[in-house]
Amino acid sequence: MEALFTTQYPVAKADYVSAGKASQDIKRRLKQLGIGGDVLRRVAVASYEVELNLVIHSEGGTLTLTLYPDCVELNSVDVGPGIADVSMAMREGWSTANDEARALGFGAGMGLPNMKRNADDFSIQSELGKGTVIDMRFHLPGWQGEQT
């Protein structure tokens, strides 16, 4: 299905001041495009979590928002360092965040599980030394199912 709208946000490593601004913009844009209610809230929460993860844990990366007629996609790609043990990282309460992130109220080890909970479809691929890719999809009313 053809994308109605797509935009990319570069997210810098350790930029705690700006962290979350891409997600604010994502939420505001989707709202302008007529997305609301529960889906908008779930996209916003997952977007904020993944953006914070890029700032706290990655060497930097890109967050991409794509709107299709029947779903919203969020895609996060970073340039490293990759996650040593993805199954551990998916556990609630498991975190490697530093003190700076914790002082801001993050690093409780809820980020990845919370993304998974909020997205209708969630996938993560990570390779140590290379980077991490997270794809999330949020179904809109009229969701047509997986397109081949």
Binding site: K27, V45, Y48, G105
Partner: peptide, 15 residues
Amino acid sequence: GLTNPHVVRTSEMLD
């Protein structure tokens, strides 16, 4: 008790 910008950003995400 936190007064950093993330309190407000978190509030926005959650309405």
